[in-house]
Design a protein around this nucleic acid. Structure first.
Lengths: 111, 111
DNA sequence: TCTAGTACTTGGCCATACATAGTACTTTTC
DNA sequence: GAAAAGTACTATGTATGGCCAAGTACTAGA
């Protein structure tokens, strides 16, 4: 039991929320997402992101189209489906509730 | 893939953080913690809490002493060890960073 | 053709939250 | 004092998602 491991655990589910949010703002492909996540200091590796995108796509929350690239192989550009948008709304509520609950507990002073 | 499941996933790791925080404020036993978590609307069931406490104790973050109860079997009252306090500090950083990163992503406007 | 770079895929591992059933002790009730 | 109810804790098995690591496929430049 170490801090690194708990950090990994804390990330669960939240990544999904962040990815959906990034895609909701417009067509992006995996590297775009990695860049944005990295900029926000939420470090993610390929082996996490790609399977996640596949899961979300299989669940009908995302769709993609192949677009040619000028420097390398074609890219999958993702967008949200209607179902994905609704899912994101619910996740936003969930996240806000969770942050709120955590704040209630962690800001309570020593009684 | 449904919302309920993602809620479960999001909770991972955070529960550990909340529990440590509650214990850091003074001696408590399991039912006290359940009450406080429930009050903050972070619903947790026994089957989750008890194994978690055992894990934290085995990791040397917690210690407990048996105290007699006036209504039922004796209770395990938990306190943080030094190691536990340090662990909690690091978790606090982790959580704050995570919230900050998530905010950076989710409050960014549609470019 | 060979190398380097980019984009995506796959299989296996691990830890946590949960459901469910069970144990042990105490107090109450008849 | 034995049965029932309540409280506190334990044990086992399942599912999921993040991560590691290796691998595939396509393009461009030398």
């Amino acid at each position: 039991m170490n801090v690194e491991n708990t950090q990994v655990q804390m990330r669960k589910g939240i990544l999904e929320y962040c990815i959906l949010h990034i895609i909701s703002r417009g067509e992006v492909y995996a590297s775009d997402m990695l860049d944005e996540l990295t900029a926000a200091r939420m470090i993610v590796v390929e082996g996490t992101l790609y399977p996640l995108l596949t899961r979300l796509k299989n669940a009908g929350l995302l769709e993609y189209k192949w677009i040619e690239s000028k420097s390398g192989p074609p890219r999958k550009y993702y967008t949200l489906t209607d179902k994905g948008s609704k899912f994101l709304e619910k996740l936003t509520e969930t996240w806000d509730d969770l942050v709120h609950s955590t704040q209630m507990i962690t800001t309570k002073s020593n009684a």
